[in-house]
Design a binder for these strands. Structure first.
Length: 421
RNA sequence: GGAGAGAUGGCUGAGUGGUUAAAGGCGCCGGUCUUGAAAACCGGAGAGGCGCAAGCCUCCGGGGGUUCGAAUCCCUCUCUCUCCGCCA
Protein backbone atom coordinates (compact mmCIF):
# COMPACT_ATOMS: atom_id res chain seq x y z
CA UNK A 1 0.00 0.00 0.00
CA UNK A 2 0.90 3.59 -0.40
CA UNK A 3 0.64 5.95 2.54
CA UNK A 4 -2.84 7.47 2.50
CA UNK A 5 -1.29 10.84 3.38
CA UNK A 6 0.92 10.55 0.33
CA UNK A 7 -2.08 9.76 -1.87
CA UNK A 8 -4.00 12.69 -0.38
CA UNK A 9 -1.18 15.16 -0.91
CA UNK A 10 0.04 13.84 -4.29
CA UNK A 11 -3.16 12.71 -5.91
CA UNK A 12 -2.22 13.84 -9.40
CA UNK A 13 1.22 12.23 -9.23
CA UNK A 14 -0.33 8.95 -8.12
CA UNK A 15 -2.83 9.06 -10.98
CA UNK A 16 -0.06 9.76 -13.47
CA UNK A 17 2.00 6.88 -12.08
CA UNK A 18 -0.92 4.47 -12.36
CA UNK A 19 -1.38 5.53 -15.95
CA UNK A 20 2.31 4.97 -16.71
CA UNK A 21 1.98 1.50 -15.23
CA UNK A 22 -1.20 0.67 -17.14
CA UNK A 23 -2.99 0.14 -13.83
CA UNK A 24 -6.65 1.02 -14.05
CA UNK A 25 -7.75 2.22 -10.63
CA UNK A 26 -10.00 4.99 -9.27
CA UNK A 27 -7.65 7.10 -7.17
CA UNK A 28 -10.22 9.88 -6.73
CA UNK A 29 -12.64 7.45 -5.10
CA UNK A 30 -9.99 6.57 -2.53
CA UNK A 31 -9.30 10.22 -1.79
CA UNK A 32 -13.01 10.84 -1.36
CA UNK A 33 -13.37 7.92 1.06
CA UNK A 34 -10.41 9.22 3.00
CA UNK A 35 -12.17 12.57 3.38
CA UNK A 36 -15.35 10.90 4.58
CA UNK A 37 -13.42 8.82 7.04
CA UNK A 38 -11.74 11.79 8.60
CA UNK A 39 -15.02 13.71 8.88
CA UNK A 40 -16.70 10.84 10.71
CA UNK A 41 -13.70 10.28 12.97
CA UNK A 42 -13.66 13.91 14.07
CA UNK A 43 -17.35 13.85 14.94
CA UNK A 44 -17.52 10.49 16.68
CA UNK A 45 -14.41 11.17 18.74
CA UNK A 46 -15.92 14.32 20.11
CA UNK A 47 -18.95 12.32 21.20
CA UNK A 48 -16.77 9.67 22.81
CA UNK A 49 -14.79 12.25 24.77
CA UNK A 50 -18.07 13.61 26.11
CA UNK A 51 -19.34 10.16 27.05
CA UNK A 52 -16.10 9.23 28.81
CA UNK A 53 -16.28 12.38 30.87
CA UNK A 54 -19.86 11.75 31.99
CA UNK A 55 -19.19 8.07 32.68
CA UNK A 56 -16.46 9.02 35.07
CA UNK A 57 -18.76 11.43 36.85
CA UNK A 58 -21.26 8.61 37.32
CA UNK A 59 -18.65 6.64 39.20
CA UNK A 60 -18.15 9.63 41.49
CA UNK A 61 -21.89 10.10 42.03
CA UNK A 62 -22.27 6.48 43.13
CA UNK A 63 -19.45 6.92 45.62
CA UNK A 64 -21.17 10.02 47.01
CA UNK A 65 -24.48 8.19 47.28
CA UNK A 66 -26.31 10.25 44.65
CA UNK A 67 -28.78 8.80 42.16
CA UNK A 68 -27.22 8.62 38.62
CA UNK A 69 -30.24 7.15 36.77
CA UNK A 70 -31.20 10.33 34.89
CA UNK A 71 -27.70 10.79 33.57
CA UNK A 72 -27.40 7.11 32.72
CA UNK A 73 -30.33 7.38 30.35
CA UNK A 74 -28.74 10.36 28.65
CA UNK A 75 -25.42 8.58 28.17
CA UNK A 76 -27.15 5.47 26.90
CA UNK A 77 -28.59 7.60 24.11
CA UNK A 78 -25.13 8.94 23.28
CA UNK A 79 -23.87 5.36 23.23
CA UNK A 80 -26.44 4.39 20.63
CA UNK A 81 -25.40 7.25 18.42
CA UNK A 82 -21.75 6.35 18.82
CA UNK A 83 -22.48 2.74 17.90
CA UNK A 84 -24.23 3.85 14.72
CA UNK A 85 -21.39 6.15 13.74
CA UNK A 86 -18.77 3.50 14.51
CA UNK A 87 -20.63 1.12 12.22
CA UNK A 88 -20.59 3.68 9.45
CA UNK A 89 -16.92 4.40 10.08
CA UNK A 90 -16.02 0.73 9.89
CA UNK A 91 -17.84 0.44 6.60
CA UNK A 92 -16.04 3.44 5.12
CA UNK A 93 -12.70 2.14 6.38
CA UNK A 94 -13.31 -1.23 4.78
CA UNK A 95 -13.99 0.40 1.41
CA UNK A 96 -11.00 2.67 1.82
CA UNK A 97 -8.63 -0.18 2.57
CA UNK A 98 -10.05 -2.26 -0.25
CA UNK A 99 -9.55 0.65 -2.61
CA UNK A 100 -6.00 1.22 -1.47
CA UNK A 101 -5.11 -2.44 -2.01
CA UNK A 102 -5.76 -1.93 -5.72
CA UNK A 103 -3.40 1.04 -6.04
CA UNK A 104 -0.01 -0.18 -7.26
CA UNK A 105 3.32 1.01 -5.92
CA UNK A 106 4.86 4.26 -7.13
CA UNK A 107 7.69 3.53 -9.58
CA UNK A 108 11.09 4.66 -8.36
CA UNK A 109 12.36 7.97 -9.78
CA UNK A 110 15.04 6.04 -11.63
CA UNK A 111 12.59 3.63 -13.27
CA UNK A 112 12.43 4.33 -17.01
CA UNK A 113 9.03 5.37 -18.31
CA UNK A 114 7.80 3.09 -21.04
CA UNK A 115 4.80 1.29 -22.44
CA UNK A 116 5.67 -2.40 -22.40
CA UNK A 117 8.51 -4.90 -22.45
CA UNK A 118 9.87 -3.42 -25.67
CA UNK A 119 10.85 -0.32 -23.72
CA UNK A 120 12.97 -2.18 -21.15
CA UNK A 121 16.60 -1.02 -21.45
CA UNK A 122 19.43 -3.57 -21.31
CA UNK A 123 21.66 -2.67 -18.37
CA UNK A 124 24.54 -5.10 -18.89
CA UNK A 125 25.35 -8.55 -20.14
CA UNK A 126 27.84 -11.27 -19.26
CA UNK A 127 29.47 -13.96 -21.38
CA UNK A 128 28.94 -14.59 -25.04
CA UNK A 129 26.63 -16.46 -27.32
CA UNK A 130 28.00 -19.89 -27.99
CA UNK A 131 28.61 -20.84 -31.60
CA UNK A 132 27.41 -24.26 -32.73
CA UNK A 133 28.65 -26.18 -35.77
CA UNK A 134 25.33 -28.05 -35.75
CA UNK A 135 21.71 -27.07 -35.26
CA UNK A 136 21.05 -26.80 -31.48
CA UNK A 137 18.37 -29.21 -30.32
CA UNK A 138 15.55 -27.99 -28.02
CA UNK A 139 15.75 -29.17 -24.41
CA UNK A 140 12.58 -31.22 -24.67
CA UNK A 141 14.11 -33.45 -27.31
CA UNK A 142 17.44 -33.63 -25.48
CA UNK A 143 15.73 -34.50 -22.22
CA UNK A 144 13.46 -37.14 -23.75
CA UNK A 145 16.40 -38.84 -25.41
CA UNK A 146 18.40 -38.81 -22.17
CA UNK A 147 15.45 -39.93 -20.02
CA UNK A 148 15.70 -36.81 -17.86
CA UNK A 149 11.99 -36.15 -17.75
CA UNK A 150 8.63 -37.62 -18.65
CA UNK A 151 6.11 -34.86 -19.23
CA UNK A 152 3.41 -37.18 -20.51
CA UNK A 153 3.23 -39.08 -17.28
CA UNK A 154 3.44 -35.85 -15.31
CA UNK A 155 0.37 -34.72 -17.21
CA UNK A 156 -1.32 -38.02 -16.47
CA UNK A 157 -1.20 -37.52 -12.70
CA UNK A 158 -1.71 -33.75 -12.56
CA UNK A 159 -2.19 -32.13 -15.95
CA UNK A 160 -0.06 -30.43 -18.54
CA UNK A 161 2.44 -28.03 -17.11
CA UNK A 162 3.29 -30.23 -14.17
CA UNK A 163 6.71 -31.48 -15.11
CA UNK A 164 8.03 -34.84 -14.02
CA UNK A 165 11.78 -35.18 -13.67
CA UNK A 166 13.40 -38.55 -13.71
CA UNK A 167 16.78 -40.11 -13.06
CA UNK A 168 19.63 -37.70 -13.85
CA UNK A 169 17.04 -35.01 -14.58
CA UNK A 170 15.68 -35.23 -11.05
CA UNK A 171 19.20 -35.33 -9.68
CA UNK A 172 20.14 -32.23 -11.66
CA UNK A 173 17.15 -30.42 -10.20
CA UNK A 174 18.25 -31.34 -6.69
CA UNK A 175 21.90 -30.49 -7.40
CA UNK A 176 21.02 -27.02 -8.67
CA UNK A 177 18.90 -26.26 -5.61
CA UNK A 178 21.68 -27.38 -3.31
CA UNK A 179 24.32 -25.45 -5.24
CA UNK A 180 22.37 -22.20 -5.14
CA UNK A 181 21.43 -22.45 -1.47
CA UNK A 182 25.04 -23.16 -0.55
CA UNK A 183 26.24 -20.19 -2.59
CA UNK A 184 23.81 -17.75 -0.99
CA UNK A 185 24.27 -18.99 2.56
CA UNK A 186 28.00 -19.57 2.52
CA UNK A 187 29.24 -16.78 0.26
CA UNK A 188 26.49 -14.15 0.19
CA UNK A 189 25.48 -14.10 3.86
CA UNK A 190 21.85 -15.21 3.61
CA UNK A 191 20.13 -17.29 6.28
CA UNK A 192 18.23 -20.22 4.87
CA UNK A 193 14.52 -20.60 5.51
CA UNK A 194 12.44 -23.66 4.75
CA UNK A 195 8.97 -22.09 4.81
CA UNK A 196 5.42 -23.40 4.45
CA UNK A 197 4.46 -24.07 0.83
CA UNK A 198 0.94 -22.79 1.40
CA UNK A 199 -0.08 -19.41 2.75
CA UNK A 200 -3.27 -17.80 4.00
CA UNK A 201 -5.05 -14.83 2.48
CA UNK A 202 -3.45 -12.38 4.90
CA UNK A 203 0.05 -13.32 3.76
CA UNK A 204 -1.02 -13.24 0.11
CA UNK A 205 -2.39 -9.74 0.66
CA UNK A 206 0.76 -8.62 2.46
CA UNK A 207 3.00 -9.17 -0.53
CA UNK A 208 0.40 -8.02 -3.07
CA UNK A 209 -0.83 -11.21 -4.75
CA UNK A 210 -4.28 -10.60 -3.31
CA UNK A 211 -6.78 -9.20 -3.88
CA UNK A 212 -5.99 -8.31 -7.48
CA UNK A 213 -4.28 -11.45 -8.74
CA UNK A 214 -6.40 -14.17 -7.18
CA UNK A 215 -6.92 -15.95 -10.48
CA UNK A 216 -3.18 -16.38 -11.03
CA UNK A 217 -3.00 -18.66 -8.01
CA UNK A 218 -4.24 -22.07 -7.05
CA UNK A 219 -6.30 -22.16 -3.91
CA UNK A 220 -7.71 -24.57 -1.40
CA UNK A 221 -10.91 -22.84 -0.32
CA UNK A 222 -11.92 -25.45 2.23
CA UNK A 223 -8.89 -24.53 4.30
CA UNK A 224 -8.47 -20.91 3.18
CA UNK A 225 -5.00 -21.65 1.84
CA UNK A 226 -3.13 -20.89 -1.36
CA UNK A 227 -0.20 -22.93 -2.70
CA UNK A 228 2.54 -20.31 -2.94
CA UNK A 229 3.38 -18.79 -6.35
CA UNK A 230 6.79 -17.77 -4.96
CA UNK A 231 8.75 -18.09 -1.72
CA UNK A 232 8.51 -14.31 -1.53
CA UNK A 233 5.09 -14.74 0.09
CA UNK A 234 5.92 -16.90 3.12
CA UNK A 235 9.41 -15.49 3.63
CA UNK A 236 8.38 -11.83 3.50
CA UNK A 237 5.34 -12.34 5.68
CA UNK A 238 7.16 -14.15 8.46
CA UNK A 239 7.75 -10.72 10.01
CA UNK A 240 4.21 -9.44 9.43
CA UNK A 241 2.77 -7.32 12.26
CA UNK A 242 6.12 -7.09 13.96
CA UNK A 243 8.43 -4.30 14.99
CA UNK A 244 11.81 -5.83 14.28
CA UNK A 245 14.14 -5.41 17.19
CA UNK A 246 17.30 -6.54 15.44
CA UNK A 247 20.05 -5.40 13.15
CA UNK A 248 19.06 -4.70 9.54
CA UNK A 249 19.35 -5.83 6.85
CA UNK A 250 17.95 -9.31 7.34
CA UNK A 251 18.91 -11.63 4.47
CA UNK A 252 16.97 -14.82 3.80
CA UNK A 253 17.13 -17.43 1.10
CA UNK A 254 14.69 -20.25 0.58
CA UNK A 255 14.05 -23.10 -1.76
CA UNK A 256 10.39 -23.79 -2.51
CA UNK A 257 8.31 -25.22 -5.28
CA UNK A 258 6.10 -22.53 -6.86
CA UNK A 259 2.57 -22.97 -8.16
CA UNK A 260 1.06 -20.72 -10.81
CA UNK A 261 -2.12 -21.12 -12.80
CA UNK A 262 -0.68 -19.07 -15.66
CA UNK A 263 -4.17 -17.87 -16.42
CA UNK A 264 -4.20 -15.94 -19.66
CA UNK A 265 -1.16 -17.76 -20.99
CA UNK A 266 -3.01 -20.72 -22.50
CA UNK A 267 -1.37 -21.88 -25.68
CA UNK A 268 1.78 -19.87 -25.07
CA UNK A 269 5.16 -21.56 -24.52
CA UNK A 270 3.47 -24.90 -24.07
CA UNK A 271 6.41 -27.17 -24.85
CA UNK A 272 9.00 -28.36 -22.42
CA UNK A 273 9.94 -26.31 -19.40
CA UNK A 274 9.33 -22.85 -20.87
CA UNK A 275 6.15 -22.12 -18.91
CA UNK A 276 4.88 -24.55 -16.28
CA UNK A 277 2.35 -24.62 -13.44
CA UNK A 278 4.79 -26.00 -10.90
CA UNK A 279 8.47 -25.24 -10.70
CA UNK A 280 11.34 -25.10 -8.25
CA UNK A 281 12.97 -21.86 -7.27
CA UNK A 282 15.56 -20.53 -4.87
CA UNK A 283 14.54 -17.10 -3.68
CA UNK A 284 16.38 -14.30 -1.88
CA UNK A 285 14.54 -11.83 0.36
CA UNK A 286 15.94 -8.79 2.16
CA UNK A 287 14.53 -6.52 4.84
CA UNK A 288 16.39 -3.22 4.94
CA UNK A 289 16.18 0.36 6.08
CA UNK A 290 15.17 3.02 3.51
CA UNK A 291 18.75 4.32 3.59
CA UNK A 292 20.29 1.08 2.37
CA UNK A 293 17.56 -0.40 0.21
CA UNK A 294 18.86 0.80 -3.16
CA UNK A 295 22.33 -0.51 -2.44
CA UNK A 296 20.96 -3.82 -1.14
CA UNK A 297 18.82 -4.15 -4.27
CA UNK A 298 21.89 -3.80 -6.48
CA UNK A 299 23.77 -6.32 -4.34
CA UNK A 300 20.92 -8.83 -4.45
CA UNK A 301 20.86 -8.60 -8.23
CA UNK A 302 24.59 -9.31 -8.31
CA UNK A 303 24.03 -12.30 -5.99
CA UNK A 304 21.61 -13.74 -8.53
CA UNK A 305 24.02 -13.04 -11.37
CA UNK A 306 26.76 -14.86 -9.49
CA UNK A 307 24.78 -18.10 -9.82
CA UNK A 308 24.82 -17.77 -13.59
CA UNK A 309 28.45 -16.72 -13.73
CA UNK A 310 29.50 -19.77 -11.74
CA UNK A 311 27.51 -21.93 -14.11
CA UNK A 312 29.15 -20.17 -17.07
CA UNK A 313 25.91 -19.08 -18.70
CA UNK A 314 25.52 -16.11 -21.01
CA UNK A 315 22.98 -13.66 -19.59
CA UNK A 316 21.81 -10.08 -19.70
CA UNK A 317 20.21 -7.77 -17.16
CA UNK A 318 17.36 -5.53 -18.23
CA UNK A 319 15.50 -2.94 -16.23
CA UNK A 320 11.72 -3.00 -16.35
CA UNK A 321 10.06 0.19 -17.50
CA UNK A 322 6.97 1.58 -15.78
CA UNK A 323 4.62 -0.22 -18.16
CA UNK A 324 6.13 -3.63 -17.44
CA UNK A 325 6.80 -3.25 -13.73
CA UNK A 326 5.16 -5.67 -11.30
CA UNK A 327 2.26 -4.35 -9.23
CA UNK A 328 4.10 -4.05 -5.91
CA UNK A 329 7.56 -3.15 -7.21
CA UNK A 330 9.11 0.31 -7.36
CA UNK A 331 12.11 -0.84 -9.37
CA UNK A 332 12.97 -4.14 -10.96
CA UNK A 333 15.79 -5.84 -12.85
CA UNK A 334 15.11 -8.97 -14.85
CA UNK A 335 17.90 -11.39 -15.56
CA UNK A 336 17.59 -13.33 -18.79
CA UNK A 337 19.47 -16.38 -20.04
CA UNK A 338 20.19 -17.08 -23.67
CA UNK A 339 18.63 -20.30 -24.93
CA UNK A 340 20.09 -21.19 -28.36
CA UNK A 341 17.48 -23.69 -29.51
CA UNK A 342 14.68 -21.30 -28.55
CA UNK A 343 16.66 -18.49 -30.17
CA UNK A 344 15.57 -16.13 -27.42
CA UNK A 345 16.22 -14.73 -23.98
CA UNK A 346 14.49 -16.44 -21.06
CA UNK A 347 13.71 -14.68 -17.80
CA UNK A 348 15.17 -16.56 -14.82
CA UNK A 349 15.03 -13.86 -12.16
CA UNK A 350 13.17 -10.70 -11.25
CA UNK A 351 15.00 -8.66 -8.65
CA UNK A 352 12.64 -6.07 -7.22
CA UNK A 353 12.77 -3.29 -4.68
CA UNK A 354 9.33 -2.82 -3.15
CA UNK A 355 10.42 0.05 -0.91
CA UNK A 356 7.88 0.25 1.93
CA UNK A 357 4.91 -0.89 -0.16
CA UNK A 358 4.80 -4.51 1.02
CA UNK A 359 5.93 -3.53 4.52
CA UNK A 360 2.95 -1.23 4.84
CA UNK A 361 0.53 -3.93 3.61
CA UNK A 362 2.06 -6.59 5.87
CA UNK A 363 2.86 -4.11 8.68
CA UNK A 364 6.55 -4.92 9.00
CA UNK A 365 8.43 -2.25 10.92
CA UNK A 366 11.76 -1.51 12.57
CA UNK A 367 12.96 1.26 14.87
CA UNK A 368 14.67 4.12 13.09
CA UNK A 369 17.44 6.33 14.49
CA UNK A 370 14.93 8.22 16.63
CA UNK A 371 13.64 4.97 18.07
CA UNK A 372 10.34 5.45 16.25
CA UNK A 373 8.64 2.59 14.41
CA UNK A 374 9.01 2.93 10.65
CA UNK A 375 8.31 0.61 7.75
CA UNK A 376 11.18 -1.50 6.46
CA UNK A 377 11.99 -1.80 2.79
CA UNK A 378 11.61 -5.24 1.25
CA UNK A 379 13.63 -6.52 -1.67
CA UNK A 380 13.54 -9.89 -3.33
CA UNK A 381 14.67 -11.77 -6.36
CA UNK A 382 15.00 -15.27 -7.67
CA UNK A 383 18.40 -16.74 -7.23
CA UNK A 384 17.28 -18.34 -9.56
CA UNK A 385 14.24 -20.14 -10.99
CA UNK A 386 15.03 -23.66 -12.11
CA UNK A 387 13.11 -24.52 -15.28
CA UNK A 388 14.67 -21.97 -17.58
CA UNK A 389 18.02 -22.41 -15.89
CA UNK A 390 17.81 -26.09 -16.77
CA UNK A 391 16.83 -25.17 -20.33
CA UNK A 392 19.86 -22.91 -20.66
CA UNK A 393 22.25 -25.48 -19.22
CA UNK A 394 20.93 -28.19 -21.51
CA UNK A 395 20.71 -26.18 -24.70
CA UNK A 396 23.98 -24.28 -24.29
CA UNK A 397 26.08 -27.26 -23.22
CA UNK A 398 24.78 -29.82 -25.68
CA UNK A 399 27.09 -31.75 -27.96
CA UNK A 400 26.49 -33.00 -31.46
CA UNK A 401 25.95 -36.54 -30.12
CA UNK A 402 23.08 -35.41 -27.87
CA UNK A 403 25.09 -35.49 -24.65
CA UNK A 404 25.25 -32.52 -22.29
CA UNK A 405 28.33 -31.25 -20.47
CA UNK A 406 27.62 -30.22 -16.90
CA UNK A 407 29.20 -27.04 -15.47
CA UNK A 408 32.13 -27.85 -13.21
CA UNK A 409 30.57 -26.31 -10.08
CA UNK A 410 27.82 -28.93 -10.29
CA UNK A 411 30.09 -31.97 -10.42
CA UNK A 412 30.30 -32.41 -6.64
CA UNK A 413 26.54 -31.99 -6.37
CA UNK A 414 25.99 -34.60 -9.09
CA UNK A 415 28.05 -37.22 -7.30
CA UNK A 416 30.93 -36.74 -9.70
CA UNK A 417 28.87 -36.93 -12.88
CA UNK A 418 30.37 -34.52 -15.42
CA UNK A 419 28.27 -35.25 -18.43
CA UNK A 420 24.74 -36.42 -19.18
CA UNK A 421 24.48 -39.06 -21.86
C1' G B 1 -10.60 -36.81 16.13
C1' G B 2 -11.03 -36.52 22.09
C1' A B 3 -9.54 -33.75 26.82
C1' G B 4 -7.38 -29.58 29.05
C1' A B 5 -4.49 -24.82 29.38
C1' G B 6 -3.40 -20.28 27.36
C1' A B 7 -3.17 -15.50 24.04
C1' U B 8 -1.45 -8.46 27.78
C1' G B 9 3.74 -3.37 25.40
C1' G B 10 10.42 -4.79 21.51
C1' C B 11 10.61 -9.42 24.89
C1' U B 12 9.01 -11.53 29.61
C1' G B 13 5.16 -11.14 33.08
C1' A B 14 1.31 -8.98 36.96
C1' G B 15 -3.39 -7.42 36.68
C1' U B 16 -11.12 -10.29 37.58
C1' G B 17 -16.00 -3.90 36.31
C1' G B 18 -14.38 2.93 37.59
C1' U B 19 -6.96 7.98 37.39
C1' U B 20 -4.81 0.90 34.56
C1' A B 21 -1.73 2.81 29.01
C1' A B 22 -1.54 -1.05 32.26
C1' A B 23 3.16 -3.18 38.28
C1' G B 24 7.90 -5.86 38.18
C1' G B 25 11.94 -7.78 35.17
C1' C B 26 14.89 -7.85 30.54
C1' G B 27 16.27 -5.01 26.54
C1' C B 28 16.46 0.20 24.65
C1' C B 29 17.60 5.76 25.02
C1' G B 30 19.66 9.97 28.07
C1' G B 31 22.55 11.23 32.44
C1' U B 32 25.92 10.49 36.96
C1' C B 33 30.32 7.80 38.17
C1' U B 34 34.96 6.00 35.15
C1' U B 35 41.11 7.34 31.50
C1' G B 36 37.45 4.30 28.58
C1' A B 37 34.02 0.38 29.15
C1' A B 38 31.24 -2.72 32.43
C1' A B 39 28.66 -2.61 37.02
C1' A B 40 25.84 0.56 40.12
C1' C B 41 22.59 4.68 40.60
C1' C B 42 19.08 8.57 38.52
C1' G B 43 15.79 9.72 34.64
C1' G B 44 13.07 8.63 29.88
C1' A B 45 10.29 5.67 26.79
C1' G B 46 3.86 1.52 24.14
C1' A B 47 1.28 1.57 19.18
C1' G B 48 -2.20 3.72 15.78
C1' G B 49 -5.54 7.67 14.37
C1' C B 50 -7.87 12.86 14.19
C1' G B 51 -6.27 17.96 14.78
C1' C B 52 -2.47 24.13 12.78
C1' A B 53 -2.25 23.50 17.90
C1' A B 54 -3.92 22.68 22.75
C1' G B 55 -5.69 18.34 23.01
C1' C B 56 -8.83 14.24 22.01
C1' C B 57 -10.01 9.14 20.43
C1' U B 58 -8.87 3.94 19.76
C1' C B 59 -6.02 -0.41 21.01
C1' C B 60 -4.55 -5.85 26.36
C1' G B 61 -5.37 -12.44 19.79
C1' G B 62 -10.13 -11.40 15.97
C1' G B 63 -15.49 -10.57 16.02
C1' G B 64 -20.05 -9.91 18.80
C1' G B 65 -22.72 -9.00 23.55
C1' U B 66 -23.81 -7.12 28.82
C1' U B 67 -22.94 -2.09 31.22
C1' C B 68 -23.32 4.80 32.21
C1' G B 69 -18.30 2.47 32.10
C1' A B 70 -14.74 -3.84 30.08
C1' A B 71 -7.79 -6.04 29.81
C1' U B 72 -11.28 -7.59 33.68
C1' C B 73 -18.14 -10.60 32.89
C1' C B 74 -20.81 -13.57 28.67
C1' C B 75 -20.85 -15.75 23.51
C1' U B 76 -18.07 -16.97 19.24
C1' C B 77 -13.85 -17.58 16.00
C1' U B 78 -8.63 -18.11 15.22
C1' C B 79 -4.00 -19.50 16.88
C1' U B 80 -0.42 -21.68 20.45
C1' C B 81 0.86 -25.33 24.16
C1' U B 82 0.11 -30.17 26.99
C1' C B 83 -2.00 -35.14 27.16
C1' C B 84 -4.64 -39.24 24.45
C1' G B 85 -5.84 -41.51 19.67
C1' C B 86 -4.54 -41.96 14.47
C1' C B 87 -0.76 -41.24 10.93
C1' A B 88 3.98 -39.59 7.31
Amino acid sequence: MLDIKFIRENTEAVKAAMQNRNVDVDVDAVVELDGRRRAIVAEVEELKAERNKISKSIGLMIKEGKDPEAIKAQVREMGDKITAMDDELREVETWLREGMLYIANMPSDSTPIGKDENDNPVIRSWGERKEFDFEPVPHWDLGDALGMFDFERGAKVAGSGFPLFKGKGAKLERALIQFMLDLHTEEHGYTEIAPPFMCNATAMTGTGQLPKFAEDMYNVPIDGLYPIPTAEVPVTNIYGNEILDCELPILHTAYTPCFRREAGSAGKDTRGLLRVHQFDKVEMVKFTTPETSEEEHEKLTLDAEKVLQKLGLHYRVIELCTGDLGFSAAKCYDIELWAPAQDKWLEVSSCSNFKDYQARRANIRYRNEDGKPAFVHTINGSGVALPRLVIAIMENNQNADGSIDLPEVLWPYMGGIKKLG
